[in-house]
């Protein structure tokens, strides 16, 4: 996305957020190429070691390199954070658009299904999946993704409902456009931006949820690092080495904040008109 028009918003915060996300993203993608110690190799003599030339951020309670774990953790946290909302935005977005456009029984069914999904206790669902399908990153993405569908459905349906009544959609109908053409050419471009903004907020929420699930032991299976599991493990030595929990917490906080800032800026840009005049 381009920078906000005409200095409508101070761009410095947005720029910082984008730089941070780029940094984290690159680190996660190129984690294997970076000259880092293995994130799972234990150095039982260097438990909770303070930072030195070899271990820039020190070691954790099992003597594993913190920096390496943070960067490899970014890989898992970001892939869960990005992929789970993709499930939500595609399934939920499509369902919401169809429900809002066609109305009738389809809408009743969708809204009903979404309500059922919302009412289902998320932890029980996560427990059931990990118990029967096993604990893996893929299952984690699936669980959080499915739980995110209702929110995306609702946003897409609400936007579509108001768009369907707009004159330009009626105009397309009057021209004899097919339903699929109206949905793809007239409605989708107008639903896309609000959904993208919501998607970025979804990413932020998912990173936190992944953290919480890993913290509870329902997330990524050990010894693979994720920010949430690092906080969980760091908790045991809060009194001895509080930075073990705080470092991943700070990184997670910054990333979530950055996604929120980008999401908000995008939402401010949703309106194609440059201010009311």
């Amino acid at each position: 996305m381009a920078a906000p028009r005409g200095g409508r918003r101070p761009g410095a915060v947005l720029a910082c957020a984008l730089v941070w996300l780029a940094l984290i993203g690159c680190a996660a993608i190129f984690a294997n190429l970076l000259p880092l110690p293995s994130p799972t190799e234990m150095d039982l003599l260097g438990k909770r070691a303070l930072p030195d030339a070899q271990h820039w951020l020190g070691n954790d309670q099992l003597g594993r390199d913190m920096l390496s774990r943070l960067i490899h953790g970014a890989r898992i946290s970001l892939s869960v954070g990005l992929l789970a909302p993709v499930i939500g935005v595609t399934v939920g977005g499509a369902l919401g658009m169809l429900a809002g456009y066609f109305r009738g029984p389809l809408e009743t069914l969708t809204v009903g299904g979404v309500d059922v999904l919302l009412a289902f206790p998320p932890l029980v669902f996560a427990l059931a999946v990990t118990t029967y399908l096993g604990q893996s990153v893929l299952n984690l993405i699936l669980v959080i993704g499915i739980l995110g569908i209702p929110a995306f459905t609702r946003v897409a349906r609400a936007v579509t409902l108001s768009l369907t009544e707009r004159e330009f959609v009626v105009a397309a109908r009057a021209l004899g456009a097919t339903h699929s053409r109206i949905l793809l050419r007239e409605i989708l471009p107008n639903v896309a931006l609000p959904l993208t903004a919501f998607f970025l907020l979804g990413v932020a929420v998912t990173i936190v949820v992944e953290g919480a699930l890993s913290f509870l032991g329902l997330g990524v299976p050990p010894p693979a690092p994720s920010w949430g599991s690092m906080i969980g493990e760091g908790r045991e030595s809060l009194d001895l080495a509080p930075w073990l929990a705080f470092l991943p917490a700070v990184v997670m906080f910054m990333t979530v904040l950055a996604f929120n800032v980008v999401g908000d800026s995008l939402r401010a840009l949703t309106d194609p008109r440059p201010g009311a005049l």
């Binding site: 707009r166 004159e167 330009f168 009626v170 105009a171 009057a174 021209l175 050419r185 007239e186 471009p189 107008n190 194609p272 008109r273």
Partner: peptide
């Protein structure tokens, strides 16, 4: 064909 009252609303803004 049909022409509407609100010409701005009857054009897809995107």
């Amino acid at each position: 064909q049909l022409i509407f009252q609100d010409p701005i609303a009857s054009l897809n803004p995107r």
